[in-house]
């Protein structure tokens, strides 16, 4: 991928709110960031977590809580949500990282169910209703986020910064070791790399960024709900990543846009959306396993 391509995408992102309904665009970006964070773990570390909604959702709750109860501003609110998700990621990671494959997935799922239960029962989470009416507030004290465009560009800036961080992580000395572990774990161990700690760091990074996505979303929609921490959301982020193409930087963005876009466009037909997305997923797994971006990338390489 060359620079021009990224610049075009960046400019499109800047112009988007004039062509697309800004709230939809913000939702797309939040889920795209969530999927990118998830992909850092699945695509670049080879770990399938089934509990990523725990980070996304708990960050949303924490941000909502500190902003409504403690009068935090949006910036410190998002930072609080993000840090909480990172800390939670450390706890999950320490418990799950020694297990592999299906066991790893099951442990993360179980821990996520605990977070879901706590979100339902704890006194400050609003139970079934979740947190409502989270104020958008004034960013840095002078940018009014109740203005849709201000809100949009804030979300866009967060997205770009996090995406850059993921890009950098993939192309860092750490990223090289991650890649080596994915390709041949015993060999990476025999070269003296502490594989568990490397994986743990990847897990915490992924959880932290998933938290940023959830925290941002809670400010955009001014709510934190049980849906955000439910295992459906964990499943949906897996779907987005696989559909777009795991292990590619652009894939999760394309996947998130496809899934969220379809849900939005087809909302008129009600629950049939789930069936259609399910069908698309089946076709994807059967016919083009690398996902949309993965397949395009392969065709591109072949034709040159």
């Amino acid at each position: 991928m060359n620079k021009t391509f990224w610049i075009i995408l960046f400019v499109l992102g800047l112009l988007a709110p004039f062509a697309v309904y800004p709230v939809l665009m913000m939702e797309l970006l939040c889920f795209a960031l969530f999927a990118c964070a998830f992909n850092l773990l699945l695509g670049y570390s080879g770990l399938l977590s089934f509990g990523h909604a725990a980070f996304f959702g708990s960050a949303a709750y924490i941000t909502g809580f500190v902003m409504t109860q403690w009068n935090f501003g949006p910036f410190s609110g998002i930072v609080a949500g993000t840090l909480f998700a990172g800390a939670l990621g450390l706890v999950f990671g320490l418990l799950a990282i020694r297990r592999q494959g299906i066991y790893f997935a099951m442990i993360t799922l179980a821990l996520e169910q605990i977070v879901f239960f706590l979100s339902l029962k704890l006194p400050f989470t609003g139970g079934e209703d979740g947190l409502q009416g989270i104020p958008r507030g004034m960013l840095f004290g002078f940018i009014d986020l109740n203005q849709p465009l201000n809100m949009y560009y804030t979300v866009f800036a967060i997205f770009v910064a996090c995406f850059w961080l993921i890009h950098r992580t993939v192309h860092s000395p750490f990223g090289q070791v991650l890649r080596a572990i994915r390709e041949n774990e015993p060999r990476a161990i025999s070269l003296g790399y502490n594989v568990e700690r490397i994986k743990l760091l990847a897990f915490v990074l992924s959880a932290t960024l998933a938290g940023t996505a959830g925290a941002t979303k809670s400010i955009v929609f001014q709510t934190a709900s049980l849906t955000d921490v439910s295992w459906h959301t964990s499943g949906s982020v897996i779907l987005m990543t696989l559909l777009g193409g795991m292990g590619t930087l652009l894939g999760p963005i394309v996947g998130a846009f496809t899934v969220v876009g379809l849900e939005h466009e087809l909302s008129g037909i009600g629950s049939w959306v789930t069936v259609i997305i399910g069908m698309i997923f089946i076709v994807c797994v059967l016919a083009f396993r690398r996902g949309i971006v993965g397949e395009i990338g392969r065709l591109w390489k072949r034709s040159f």
Binding site: H171, P173, F174, L191
Partner: peptide, 22 residues
């Protein structure tokens, strides 16, 4: 080969640096 050499630099956890340092 570089991956083996890299270990002695002690940068295995540095996710914020560019891999061009390698």
């Amino acid at each position: 080969v570089r991956l083996a050499l890299q270990r002695k630099l002690g940068v295995a956890y540095q996710f914020w640096r560019s891999d061009s340092m390698l």
